[in-house]
Design a protein around this nucleic acid. Structure first.
Lengths: 154, 154
DNA sequence: TTATAAATGATAATAATTCTCAACAACAAT
DNA sequence: ATTGTTGTTGAGAATTATTATCATTTATAA
């Protein structure tokens, strides 16, 4: 019987094939990680994850692979501002991100109404629209508590 | 009679004062540039602009100043993907950006309906929302023509 | 004025990203 | 299955972007 990990790798492998992307172990692992993780991982996190799972990989390959996936619209890049690191997310079902400006935690909101603005953008600019991204910045519930406690202790 | 440039600097100076930001020549010039330019300039463009206009400035000051303005919500950072450089924009009236993935041109769309999604985000996540940003990626009319011609000439 | 707290700027230090190219691997055609 | 071709990987170098340092200068309030 196949393990969960094997199943996920298989799904990723099929995704690569249907996108005519050559099927290497590194690409399978990176894509399956992005498909299943809710952490919206950074380059560094992805690099460590692949090695931790027993595959060889270099940083150059992580960069190349993520760029390739972005070009194929399989994933998106998220600029999570404070900290300055790019984060990556599998993007099959349209959703947007709510990002904590204190701890950088990112949560998904699966509501595609923001996508309606693409039509307005086309009408107003004449651009040929490929995709769009909506991001909300704020303070997560945990950090709201932390910051409140901090203020009291001055 | 005051020149246009002088007027713009005056407006910027008042903006700084009303935000309790110490009023230095560098800050005036950078803010006035962001308030009047439609170019959504990068760090490099801002640095060159300030020097071209006869003021001394260092890269460190440009970085510091932009961070300060972002913290005061006077401007926003835009991750214009391809090219990887951050771009900056004065942000008084809510609007979103339509970005050409080929030439990186950024145009504004002044339609704040995307802001309505903030309420949904609050309800679904419990975050204390500070602001939100919507970005559309596509190909601008000029590049549509260029790319079409290119394809024909292979 | 003058005191003082803060900003500037030259440069160093660090971190992130891209480049290079030899060795290797995927996959289509046989 | 074997092989040839084309594309991928990876170690490290090169480059680029960003942040830190700190002596000097400047803005502002008293």
């Amino acid at each position: 019987m196949a393990t969960q990990e094997q199943n996920t790798l298989l799904v990723a492998a099929n995704k690569l094939k249907s996108n005519k992307i050559k099927n290497t172990p590194q690409r399978q692992v990176i894509l399956s990680y992005l498909m299943t993780s809710h952490a919206h991982p950074s380059i560094e996190m992805i690099f460590k994850y692949v090695r931790k799972n027993g595959f060889s990989v270099s940083l150059a390959t992580v960069y190349n692979t993520l760029q390739l996936f972005v070009d194929h619209n399989l994933i998106i890049e998220i600029a999570a501002d404070s900290g300055g690191h790019m984060r990556y997310d599998y993007f099959e079902v349209p959703h947007y991100h709510v990002i904590c400006v204190n701890c950088n935690k990112i949560v998904d909101v699966f509501d595609d109404s923001y996508k309606k603005n693409e039509k307005i953008a086309i009408a107003k600019t004449g651009y040929q629209v490929l995709n769009s991204q909506y991001e909300v910045y704020g303070v997560c519930p945990e950090c709201q508590v932390k910051l409140k406690n901090k203020a009291v202790r001055i």
